[in-house]
Amino acid sequence: MEEVVPYSTAPARTRRNDPGRRDRIIDACLDVIAESGVAGASHRRVAAAAGVPLGSMTYHFAGMDELLVEAFTRFARGVSDQFEQRMTAATDVDSARRAVADLITRDVFGSQRDLVLTHELYTLASREPAYRVITNAWMTRSRAALERHFDPVTAQMLDALIEGLTIHRALDTKPQDPALVRTAIERITALRSDTRT
């Protein structure tokens, strides 16, 4: 006699065999945003990029807003993790200055993808409080990492410098001169020693 397998067991097996599906959707969402912007990120496009059935989108996320918040939270945490690693590895003020320069010119904001994602997040945060929570958490972590080597006022100025220079880098039609970055960092951090003398 042929064994009958209940239909309801098939979806459960599929989900068990694809435990990383939710993470793939989040990563694919970031890829789609980097390529087409938030305006171009739809359930259908993200599902195709993740290689998952369209129904997976509504299974894992209540809607596009939830997915966008999750995706940008993951992006901001990843950038903050790299930032903290750089600043933790610095052993003195000079190496901390070099670390900040590397963050701006090579590391965290070194790719066009990261710059696009950053600006898409800033645009959302300028209008929507949920995304402002993400950017505020990002700034808080950045300043805490900078305060390993610089006083709080200097750390805040450096954080603003990093943001400003990355915006210029993203929008300028000419490549940014790394020497300008180093000079700006040196001038801001020189205030640290001046105010303590």
Rank of each mutant, 00 (worst) to 15 (best):
Y7S: 04
Y7V: 13
S8W: 11
A12L: 13
A12Q: 11
R13I: 11
T14S: 14
G20K: 11
R21F: 01
D23S: 15
R24V: 06
R24T: 03
I26P: 02
I26G: 05
A28V: 08
I33C: 05
G37D: 11
A41N: 08
A48W: 02
A49Q: 15
A50I: 05
P53E: 12
L54Q: 12
M57G: 06
M64A: 12
M64I: 12
M64Y: 02
E66F: 03
L67G: 03
L68W: 10
A71S: 15
A71R: 05
V79C: 10
E84T: 15
R86Y: 13
R86S: 14
M87T: 08
T88A: 15
D92R: 08
D92M: 10
D92C: 12
V93M: 11
V93N: 09
D94K: 11
D94M: 09
S95I: 02
S95P: 06
A99D: 06
A99N: 09
D102Q: 13
I104V: 15
R106I: 00
V108F: 00
F109R: 03
G110M: 04
Q112F: 03
L115R: 13
T118I: 00
H119N: 10
T123F: 01
L124Y: 05
S126K: 09
V133K: 06
V133Y: 02
T135P: 05
T135I: 05
A137C: 01
A144C: 02
A145Q: 04
L146F: 12
R148W: 02
F150D: 07
T154Q: 04
T154G: 04
A155L: 07
D159H: 14
A160G: 12
A170N: 08
A170V: 00
D172K: 00
P175M: 06
D177K: 00
L180V: 07
L180F: 07
R182V: 12
T183E: 10
A184I: 04
E186Q: 12
I188L: 15
L191I: 06
R192D: 15
S193V: 13
S193N: 05
D194K: 07
T195R: 15
T195F: 13
T195Y: 11
R196L: 09
T197G: 07
